[in-house]
Design a protein around this nucleic acid. Structure first.
Length: 196
DNA sequence: CTTTAGATCGTCT
DNA sequence: GACGATCTAAAGG
């Protein structure tokens, strides 16, 4: 079933990042439904985390979304061409977010191929920029609710097998985050979660 | 297999 | 004006 507001408003962003592994994220834009199983995440822990856009309580037009209450998405542009998808968590004024870094495609695979120009599922959504392309996520989707009919996340109570990718009885490994060497000591925190 | 350059633009200073 | 929570293609070993 669809994850609820009370789920997103829990205050432990690192635990939520770990828990989101194995859940299914959907988008439904203009009648085109696509989804994938979340297989890699990273937690960004608000104002105390040097790697977070909201570090030190930094409020700008861009980071404002993270300060709102949990249960919406934060989309931003990286390197001038890639959209990044984040799940805003925690209560209002607590700018926690979970970056979705990889999904295993499930629903609407033909649409994903069309959006990415790829002919196979290999490497189609295994990266934060790539999954946004596969799911059709654009800058204009920043700030939209995860309880509406355009994007949502579902808990799974059974296992999946998708075109050779088996997601069953998996383990979850914690590692340091990617691409945040500027964050000093915080770059070493085990805030990245992957299926193992 | 690994390394490297180049693409490209919203956001902040 | 500088810089990314990245990706790809191309070249080299």
């Amino acid at each position: 079933m669809k994850l609820s507001l009370s789920y997103y408003r829990q205050n432990n962003v690192v635990e939520i990042a770990r828990d989101l592994i194995g859940k299914e994220i959907f988008t439904n834009f203009n009648g085109i439904l696509t989804s994938g199983i979340i297989s890699e995440t990273e937690a960004y822990a608000g104002i105390t985390d040097k790697a977070s856009h909201a570090f030190g309580g930094k409020r700008t037009q861009r980071t404002e979304t993270m300060f709102l209450n949990g249960g919406r998405i934060y989309v931003y542009l990286c390197y001038g061409m890639h959209k990044m998808l984040n799940i805003v968590t925690g209560p209002k004024e607590t700018p926690h977010a979970v970056l979705i870094r990889s999904i295993v495609p499930k629903a609407g695979i033909e649409f994903m191929k069309e959006r990415t120009g790829k002919t196979s599922l290999v490497n189609i959504s295994n990266g934060p920029g790539k999954l946004c392309k596969a799911l059709g996520i654009e800058m204009k989707h920043n700030n939209i609710s995860l309880l509406g009919n355009e994007i949502w996340i579902k808990d799974l109570d059974f296992t999946y097998e998708i075109k050779g990718y088996e997601i069953e009885g998996y383990g979850i490994k914690a590692t340091k985050r990617i691409g945040i060497d500027y964050a000093g000591e915080d770059a070493k925190l085990p805030y990245r979660f992957v299926i193992d």
